[in-house]
Design a protein around this nucleic acid. Structure first.
Lengths: 154, 154
DNA sequence: GCAATATAGATAGCATCCTATCTATTATTT
DNA sequence: AAATAATAGATAGGATGCTATCTATATTGC
C-alpha cells in the first residue's frame, strides 16, 4: 500500500501544485478585496514599481511571465482605477510607456505589507534550506517543462 | 546581491508554482489535443476509472478537489463526446450516477500511457527523497493555506 | 402529516489565462 | 523609394476555475 500511495503522490505532484496555487490566489484575493485590487492586478503594480517608471508593456509582460493580451486587460483595469498611466513613447510611436500614479505608489506600499505578512505566515514553518531546495526544484522543473514544450511543438 | 535574490526567490515561490502549473497544463493540453480531450477533462476520466462506476458527481468532484459547478460543465463535455454516461439513482432521485462508456475506457488507457510518459520524463532527474520532500512540503503548505483561509473568512 | 431545512445537481455570471488575429508603426530588403 | 517583414499593443473568443443562486428531491421537527 505504501508503494502504491507513494506512486500516486508522485503522479499527482504537479496537479497538487495547481490546487495549491488556486488556494493561494483565493487567499490573496480575499486579503486584497478591501484594497480594491484583484490578485492578478497587484503583481504588475509591484513589478512596475520595481522596474521603475517608463517601461513598455512588452517588458512588463515578460517580467511577469504572462502574455501581452493578458497584461493589456489588467492594465486597462489599473488605469481605470487611476493607479497607472499609459503615455506615448516619443521614440517609437507603437509603444506605450507605463508609470505609476501617486495613488498607485500608495497602493504599492499597502500591498507590499500585506503580501509580505501573508507569505511570512505561510512559509514560517519551513527552514531556509527547505525553501532553497523547493526553489531549486521549481527552477529545474520550469526548465524541463520549457524543453518538453518546445520539443512537442517543434 | 545574493541575499536580495534569495529573498526575491522566497517571495516568489508560490507565484512561480502557479507559473509552473500553467506551463504544465499547456504541455498536457498539447499532448492530448490529438485525443480530443482537454487538460481539465482527462483527470475526471481517470478518477472515474479509479473509483469505479456508479459514483455520484458530488463524490467525483470531491475526489478531484474541484467544485460541483466546475465538474458539471466538464461532464457535459465528456458526455457530449460519448465518454461518460449519467444515469438516475433509484435510491435518490436528486442524484446522478456516473459510468464510463466503452469508448471512455479506451480513452482512459490512452491517457494513462501519455500522462505516465510525460510525468516520468519531467520527474526523471529528481531523486525519490527529493520528490518525497517536495510532496511533504506541498502537503504542509496546503494545510497552512486552509487554516489561513478559514481564519480570514471567520 | 406538513412546514422548514438540507442536499444534489444545473445554470448564470465573474475572473484569469491563453492563442489567433487585427491595426498601426517601424525596420529591412531589393 | 516601394514592397515586405517585424514589432507593440488591442481585440475576440475559448478554456478553466470560482461563488451565488435556482430547481428538484430528501430529511427532520413539531
Amino acid at each position: 500500500m505504501t508503494t502504491a500511495n507513494a506512486k500516486v503522490d508522485k503522479e499527482n505532484l504537479l496537479y497538487r501544485m495547481g490546487f495549491l496555487t488556486r488556494r493561494w490566489r483565493q487567499v490573496l484575493d480575499g486579503a486584497f478585496q478591501s484594497l480594491g485590487v484583484t490578485d492578478a492586478a497587484w503583481r504588475p503594480l509591484l513589478h512596475l514599481h520595481h522596474m521603475g517608471d517608463g517601461i513598455r508593456q512588452k517588458d512588463l509582460a515578460a517580467s511577469l511571465g504572462i502574455e501581452g493580451p493578458t497584461l493589456t486587460r489588467i492594465l486597462d483595469q489599473l488605469i481605470a482605477k487611476g493607479l497607472v498611466e499609459r503615455s506615448e513613447d516619443a521614440s517609437d510611436r507603437r509603444a506605450k510607456l507605463l508609470t505609476l500614479t501617486p495613488k498607485g505608489r500608495t497602493m504599492v506600499t499597502e500591498i507590499t505589507g500585506k503580501v509580505s505578512a501573508l507569505e511570512h505566515e505561510l512559509l514560517d514553518g519551513f527552514s531556509e534550506p527547505e525553501i532553497s531546495q523547493i526553489s531549486a526544484f521549481i527552477e529545474r522543473l520550469e526548465h524541463r517543462l520549457q524543453e518538453t514544450r518546445s520539443r512537442l511543438k517543434g
